[in-house]
Design a protein around this nucleic acid. Structure first.
Lengths: 166, 166
DNA sequence: TATTGTTATACTCTATAACTATA
DNA sequence: TATAGTTATAGAGTATAACAATA
């Protein structure tokens, strides 16, 4: 986990209550918890994002998945090397294009993905522990209306990954 | 702005509604908007955090402020070099300790900090544009109750900075 | 002996652009 | 000629540890 990343402690004391501030702080918090939870599984949040995508697109090529996830080709190689070394992913010959690899989750990869999803669920539960179910629904609705209006990048959420790997 | 950071696009379609997910995504979103808004001022979010701290602790030493913000000494030097070069900060001789520097915001630094705060306010307003004032209050309250319970690092929010610089 | 600011080093992460083999 | 995966290189960002001056 990133022990200490950058500049500012928050100095929240001097700051007016702010949705932007809280959301930033919590976003980092969630990322940290997720990383901590995934560490015992031997993967990082970004691997989780990739594994999940692979589960939904078995047999696709590296570039195809890379495009969907906004990962440049060079990074895909390194990422997949790691996952393959751990036996979670396999590169098989592509049936119709001899240049490409067909990517597949191994059984171990599927099992680990399940465990990783459990981690995410646990993070969600612990995060919302102080809320009644109805309050959580309310919060989800309000956050959803925040998410919409002026997304800087409407197409995707590039770089979210930097924090969460989602 | 970080054009494209890491791994995963979200694949949100395949994901259950989740406070953790939304908060992560919005956290990154806020960070991006803040960076975009500050760029014309010639600073980055992390500089904002430091300038704000300086405004509240004029005359302190580098290490003193660094401790408060969780910035190691080496980074403080580089950060302050940048701010001083832009005429926003000044290192003056410390009145009681000849090893230390007394840090001060210049008038230009104060002006820029004000502009930066305006940027933050604009981000907050645009983020909450879809909400009625009462709804925003409600959201603030709910987020506040999320923030409390199990902070991974109770002492501070180290590394938040990575995203927001707050 | 401890602490201040500084500097140098190393390490991680990432983007970019070559390169090969196929199409 | 365009595209698949790969590799190499370089750049940013950061932590770490050594350093001289002062306490």
């Amino acid at each position: 986990m990133a022990a200490n990343a950058g500049i500012a402690g928050t100095g929240a004391e001097h700051f007016p209550p702010s949705v932007a501030f809280l959301v930033s702080r919590l976003g980092f918090e969630v990322g940290s918890r997720l990383a901590a939870g995934l560490a015992p599984l031997g993967i990082e949040p970004r691997d989780f994002g990739l594994l999940r995508a692979l589960a939904h697109a078995e047999g696709e090529s590296q570039r195809s998945i890379g495009r969907a996830l906004n990962i440049p080709p060079g990074r895909m190689v390194a990422l997949l090397d790691g996952l393959e070394r751990r036996g979670l992913v396999r590169r098989r010959p592509h049936p119709t294009d001899r240049r490409a690899h067909a990517l597949h989750l191994t059984p171990a990869g599927h099992r680990l993905l399940n465990d990783a999803v459990d981690v995410v669920v646990r993070v969600e539960v612990s995060l919302c522990a102080g809320l009644e179910p109805a309050e959580r629904e309310q919060l989800l609705a309000l956050l959803g209306r925040l998410a919409r209006p002026g997304a800087v990048t409407p197409e995707a959420h590039p770089g979210l990954s930097a924090v969460t790997g989602w």
